[in-house]
Design a protein around this nucleic acid. Structure first.
Lengths: 109, 109
DNA sequence: CCCATTAATCGTAATATTGCAATTAATAAA
DNA sequence: TTTATTAATTGCAATATTACGATTAATGGG
């Protein structure tokens, strides 16, 4: 099939997995880390920084933008990307709630 | 292609994306949440709880086990699964480091 | 206007993922 | 030993993802 049966899961479960999915590729992780590191916006030197072709980077940026984790601003011929702090914070709350579950007496085997 | 060029990324970036990838499907999120909720081990009532066929659940469990996030214990004809607390903690550290980056002055657009 | 620069989009090939029916393996019960 | 129960494995179809070459916007400089 190749497609997840999202309708049988809760909105929260789908939300968590959507965020996780976008982090599920090292290129997108690298892009986000680079945007954080620069402390300022970056354009297409992501293509130089990461060793992937321009269309590939563009595609990854699109997915990050689609989830709202980054914003893009046109500056002349280039486009400046940066973290969307508000949405990043929202995402962190959702992911933390999932990751930080009570670990007391969970093992039995 | 369909395959990520993992060799051009750091070990950390690949580690983060691997963890994220396994959380990138609502069924696996649901399985983990259920294991947390029960406060004890579960066997194959995951098949009843989640609405997917037994082979499908089995496959998802395999992926979670492969990353070490859950453990399985054979008990008679059934297998009891539970969270691997130690590895879950390790994973949390890696993911938190990535998610909790400094958000000060990151936006430009 | 013409050309250079930059990034998005399109098309496509290779591979991965998801899901399940059918089967197999493993153990327990009778 | 036979049978029932449970879970893993196999095989396969449908779809998604990844990557990139080629092309297409879109803007700026001359």
């Amino acid at each position: 099939m190749g497609l997840a049966k999202t309708e049988i899961f809760t909105d929260k479960q789908n939300e968590i997995s959507q965020y996780a999915k976008v982090f599920g590729h090292p290129a997108r992780v690298a892009i986000l880390q680079y945007l954080f590191k620069l402390n300022a916006c970056v354009c297409g030197d992501l293509v130089d920084e990461i060793g992937l072709a321009q269309p590939t980077i563009s595609q990854h940026l699109k997915e990050l933008k689609h989830l709202g984790l980054i914003k893009g601003n046109v500056e002349g011929t280039s486009v400046c990307y940066c973290i969307d702090v508000g949405n990043w914070t929202k995402m962190k709350k959702v992911m933390s709630e999932f990751l930080d579950q009570d670990l007391d007496k969970k093992e039995c085997c």
